[in-house]
Structure formats: C-alpha cells, structure tokens
C-alpha cells in the first residue's frame, strides 16, 4: 500500500514538475530532428526516461534537466538508428527553392527586416538559415536564442565547457549572418 501511494505521488510530482516544460522540450526536439513525428517520439522517450531517473533528480532547474535528457536521448537514437537526420549538410532543394524567392528582395540586417521583406518571408528565411546550420552550432543557437538559456545552462545541457559554448555561439552566429546576407542580399 505504502509503495503504491509513493508511486502515485511520484507520478503526480513528476507531472507537476516536468509537464510545464513540454513546449520547451518539444521546441528543442523539433529543432534537433527537424521533423514533427520524430520530435513527438523524441519528447515521449525523453519524458519516460526522465521519469525513470526522477528519483535521482535533486536539482532545482527541471527544464534544464529535462532538456539534457532529451538531448542525450536524441544522440543515443542517432547512434542506434543511423538517422538520416544526422546530416550536417545543406539541403539543396530547400536552398535552391529559397534563393529564387529571395533573389529580388533585399535583406539588410542593419535595418528593420520587416521593411525589406514580408514577415512571412523573413520567418522562412530565418528558419532555413537555422536548419542549414550544422547540428553542433544549431543546437547552441537554438538553446540560446529560442529556448533563452544562459551559457551555464547550455554548457550543462550539452555537456561542453563554457568557453566552447561561447565559441560555438560565435561561429554559429557568423554562419547565420553569412547565410542571411548571401540568400537575401542578392550579393
């Protein structure tokens, strides 16, 4: 009886603590996998794994803990499945298609992009720029800009030193700038 009640409490605590971060988890999963179905599966795997290790969770930041598990689950699945998503190359289709649309428009990062492009085109362009980044850089950029995490949190989640987080961020930003300038500026 006691064990059963404990278990029920555990489920309830787990849900109260972790389910509020479902969107954050899904967002990262979606950016890592770049696919709705894979993202959903990855989130579910991460939650079940988090539940399994929930007894060991002593931290205060449930979101960072969950994202760490999710990221590890992602790389485990990559290793196991030799996922086609593991590529860090450009998607020619995507970029060829995009370039046509942007050739005539001008994108100037220094000015308000809304003036140069419709918001919709800007969104597509930015999303494509992010998806074009190699996994290593996309990950830190997404965690920083979209998940709004600190350097320290990113270092914990990705299990890399703080200095590496910073240098990857800098590299990633440089690549983003280049991509946006090249694809929207028309040279």
């Amino acid at each position: 009886m006691g064990i059963r009640l404990d278990e029920q409490d555990k489920t309830r605590n787990f849900e109260a603590l972790l389910l509020p971060h479902l969107d954050a988890a899904y967002n990262l999963a979606r950016w890592l996998t770049r696919n709705d179905q894979n993202a959903e599966d990855l989130v579910q795997v991460a939650y079940l794994r988090a539940f399994k290790f929930f007894d060991g969770f002593r931290g205060t930041d449930a979101r960072a803990w969950l994202l760490t598990i999710l990221r590890n689950a992602y790389f485990t699945s990559l290793r196991d499945n030799r996922h086609e998503d593991a590529d860090v190359s450009f998607d020619d289709d995507l970029h060829g298609q995009g370039r046509e649309a942007w050739d005539t428009s001008s994108y100037d990062i220094g000015n308000s992009p809304e003036n140069a492009l419709a918001a919709h085109d800007t969104r597509r362009l930015v999303n494509q720029a992010l998806e074009s980044l190699p996994q290593t850089f996309r990950e830190v950029i997404v965690l920083k800009e979209i998940s709004d995490l600190s350097y320290k949190e990113i270092a914990e989640i990705t299990d890399i030193p703080l200095g590496t987080v910073m240098s990857r961020l800098a590299r990633g930003r440089k690549m983003l700038t280049d991509y946006l300038t090249k694809n929207a500026g028309g040279g």
Partner: peptide
C-alpha cells in the same frame, strides 16, 4: 540585430 531577427522570426514550436 541578428539576435533580434532570430528571436522574432525563428519558429517557437509548441507541442
């Protein structure tokens, strides 16, 4: 500006 552009326009996916 790059940061603002990414923060504003990158898709924030919801479950």
């Amino acid at each position: 500006d790059l940061q603002a552009t990414v923060k504003t326009h990158a898709t924030q996916y919801a479950a």
